[in-house]
Design a binder for these strands. Sequence first.
RNA 1: GGCGGGGUAGCCAAGUGGUAAGGCACGGCUCUGCAAAAGCUGCAUCGUCGGUUCGAUUCCGACCCUCGCCUCCA
Length: 467
Amino acid sequence: MALKFLNTLSRSVEEFVPLDPTSNVVKMYCCGPTVYDFGHIGNFRTFVFADLVRRYLQFRGYEVTHVMNITDVEDKIIRRVRETGLGLREYVSQFENAFLDDLKTLGCVLPHHLPRATEFIPEMIQLIDALMKRGIAYQAADGSIYFSIEKYQGCGCRYGQLVKLNFDEMRAGERVASDEYSKDALADFALWKARVPDDGDVFWASPWGEGRPGWHIECSAMSMKLLGPSFDLHLGGEDLAFPHHEDEIAQSEGATGKPFVKYWLHGAHLLVEGKKMSKSLGNFFKLRDLTGKGYGGREIRYLLISAHYRETFNFTLDGLDGARVALGRLDECLGKLQELAGATKAAPDSRLLNDFTAALDDDLNVASAWGTVFEWVRETNRLLAANQLSATQAASALAAWEQLDAVLGLGRKGEVEAPPEVQALLEERQAARKAKDFKRSDAVRDELKLKGWLIEDTAKGPRLKRA
RNA sequence: GGCGGGGUAGCCAAGUGGUAAGGCACGGCUCUGCAAAAGCUGCAUCGUCGGUUCGAUUCCGACCCUCGCCUCCA
């Protein structure tokens, strides 16, 4: 069995072999957030996807270095800094912190490095300088530095590795900003933007005058600084493939002459309630909007990783409700296994692990993996109900789940000790039941429900469960 | 206009040249004092029309619908 990914470079599913096939070291970079606002659910689909890739690589025995940039200088940010009168750092840090909180809410493992664009200006300048020296970049009349695609191609490099491009057929220019009219060619892109009055205090000195970096250059500079000129994996949302990632390749390979990234993975977008998210449709959800409605990060994460990353996924509130029930089913099963296993330890059940691995090896077919998990849940429940599971088998099943969960990142719903007054009510109900005073016992059950506790009568007596 | 994804049960979503995983919802049954939990069970000819084939949802062609990218949007 071998791990395979769909590599956007070849548009085909390829076996994953690290850049250095003799080692198990994997270096991955994922384009992170632009911190001008709180992240929305679509952003987080991509970041949870990256988290899944990282966790799965680790599960498969790779030693992963995971980098995610934080874009803290950009047009929208500059505009809001101007509008709010806050300093750049001051404005941005609130959303940066919120972003990290949101990642935690979703059970994401923090990347090893979270570089901020503004802290890598010297590296970006160095990179632009290299491109200038090689004659691939030029300074335009407005003082900005642009990347020349023509010169790049003249060096024998290929522009258009991730998408098929046909410049003649493109509807170019519809969204070109007014400050970019001085480019030599329409497809050229900014590496360094000359300072303009609207930038306010947001500018840095450079050999080409004051200004700020272009968007694409930051990812090239930070990824290569932290991971080297060539690395294994680069991920991001599908919209970034062109132009962002294409331009990253051009800048990086143009500057170093080395292949930039071996595997490019792109996550598909999200629909919400069947439509593209938009504020006017009322289906634009920040993560905070969802947690504010009472949904847990766990439920949201589950829903986000219930579908294959390359499919457009329809994210719905109904789906979240379903996620809650599905997780409850899983928790129920795990709770029963734990009860049976007690302190017993055992080696993980290999069949579950094998099925799970086979599914995820196939370009992270997570939907299929969930199929095997829930078939396992049903089989386990059957055995539990029939009293055919030993403590050792239960421990073995739990051990397997722990390994799966290192990938899924859902954890287990924590068992909460019932407070004394709840315990007292439970005993009162038991007494009433013994006396066959069912009216009274049902009343107590309702009272407990109001307090957030559910009762399940089992063969071994009543069990309290958090609602 | 160019390029690239999709259309599978009420909803979400896998998958395969030989009569379709899983989750949610819904109905029936078992268990239960009643519930809950759990189990069993019922519920789809896979967008349309042709073609290839002994046989296609899966391959080919056409069409319809839908989504994304086409210069700073995950």
